[in-house]
């Protein structure tokens, strides 16, 4: 599903987190929102997910206006920075949460829920951890469980806030490939936020460089490297 962002602005009180920004994300793309902290990238992601409402502007999902849709109606799979797994539930229950939260008519039967959760556990290559609690998992495992939980609701898109931020360098490299693989296999339009230009350049089809609430440049990693549009982009992407 393609995402269109039209003249989107967000203010918190008197501070402007986002100046009007416009962006067009093609269906099935893996997009990185790249920028330093305070650049507005997380705000933009949260607006897409429906966790913040824009002060002005529109968001379109697959050509339909989604600006006023509630979080629940958006069906966006969201992976939070520190994963926000439910501490008091097992991994199985964490992943099943979205399915159990559906209205009774649309809720799958218990056996079907079990089947789907196990399939997702296979997808993240952790088939045997269903009975464990989140604090019994490593950082990398938690990230993958959060991904599985987001995928369980059969989302229309995948939104990830600094998905590798809490991990050490080695695990980070491994999980980059993991995310790429899951993206390619599900074909979901995926947007992730990062402050690490190496991560953005290696992983994304399309990189959106942001600074001070504005989009500085949008392009393929190679284009941005070859032709940085502004001094900021040049200095920020210089590895």
């Amino acid at each position: 599903m393609n995402i269109e962002i039209e003249e989107l602005a967000k203010e918190f009180g008197t501070t402007r987190a986002l100046h009007p920004v416009s962006l067009s994300i093609p269906s099935g793309a893996l997009v990185a929102l790249l920028g330093p902290s305070g650049s507005g990238k997380t705000t933009l992601l949260r607006v897409l997910g429906g966790l913040e409402f824009p002060t002005s502007g529109r968001v379109l999902f697959g050509g339909q206006d989604a600006t006023g849709l509630s979080v629940q109606e958006r069906r966006a799979g969201f992976v939070f920075q520190s994963y926000a797994l439910f501490k008091h539930m097992t991994v199985f229950e964490n992943i099943a949460y979205g399915l159990r939260a559906r209205p009774r008519k649309e809720r799958p039967a218990e056996a079907e829920i079990g089947r789907r959760v196990n399939k997702l556990l296979d997808l993240i290559q952790l088939p045997d951890i269903g009975t464990r609690y989140p604090n019994q998992l490593s950082g990398g495992q938690r990230q993958r469980v959060a991904l599985a939980r987001a995928l369980a609701i059969e989302p229309r898109m995948l939104l990830l806030d600094e998905p590798f931020g809490a991990l050490d360098a080695k695990v980070r490299k491994e999980l980059r490939h993991g995310l790429r693989e899951i993206h390619d296999r599900t074909g979901l339009t995926t947007v992730f936020v990062t402050h690490d230009q190496g991560e953005a350049m290696e992983l994304a089809d399309l990189v959106v460089v942001m600074s001070m609430g504005r989009i500085e440049q949008v392009g393929k990693p190679a284009e941005i490297r070859a032709k940085p549009a502004t001094d900021f982009v040049r200095s920020f992407t210089a590895a």
């Binding site: 997910g49 429906g50 966790l51 979080v71 629940q72 958006r74 069906r75 966006a76 799979g77 969201f78 939070f80 920075q81 520190s82 926000a84 797994l85 439910f86 501490k87 008091h88 949460y97 979205g98 939260a101 559906r102 939980r149 987001a150 369980a152 609701i153």
Partner: peptide, 25 residues
């Protein structure tokens, strides 16, 4: 608020979030 927000993105209603996420915590 992260766990509540996560439950929201998974489609849970306010009451459901309160009883399944907030209250157990």
């Amino acid at each position: 608020r992260a766990e509540e927000e996560a439950a929201l993105t998974l489609g849970a209603s306010g009451w459901r979030i309160f009883f399944t996420v907030t209250l157990p915590n």
